[in-house]
Simulated assay, not measured.
Amino acid sequence: MVRKVGQKKRGKVSRRTKKIILIGAEGKNQTERKYFKAFNQAQSEYKIMAGKGNNTDPVGVVEDLLKSAKQEELDMKLGDMLACFIDVDFKKDRDKELRDAMKLARQNNISVFLSNPCFEIWYLLHFRYSTRLYGSNEEVIKDLGSYISDYSKSKDVYDLIENKLDDAFVNTKRLESYHLANGTNDRLKKLPSTEAYKLIEMILEKRH
Rank of each mutant, 00 (worst) to 15 (best):
R106Y: 06
V61N: 02
V62H: 04
R106P: 03
I86E: 04
A69P: 07
S111G: 12
S68H: 03
S68W: 05
L104I: 12
Q43D: 14
I110M: 08
L82A: 01
L104S: 06
M76I: 13
M49H: 14
K34G: 08
E63A: 13
K37D: 04
I48K: 00
G53P: 04
I48G: 00
E26Y: 09
F113E: 03
N40T: 03
S115I: 04
S115Y: 12
V88Y: 02
N55S: 14
A83R: 01
P58A: 14
Q71D: 11
L66F: 10
I86H: 04
N55R: 07
G60L: 07
G51A: 11
R99T: 09
K70S: 13
G51N: 07
K103R: 13
P58Y: 14
F36E: 01
L82Y: 01
F36Q: 00
M81S: 05
I110D: 01
T31L: 07
M76S: 13
K47W: 06
A105K: 02
V112H: 09
K52P: 05
K103S: 11
A25N: 05
S68K: 00
S68Q: 01
L82C: 00
A38Q: 14
N40V: 00
M76R: 04
K91P: 10
Y46D: 02
D80K: 09
L114S: 11
K47A: 08
Q43T: 15
G79K: 13
F39V: 00
D100F: 12
G27W: 03
V88Q: 03
G51V: 09
G60F: 06
K34W: 06
Q71V: 11
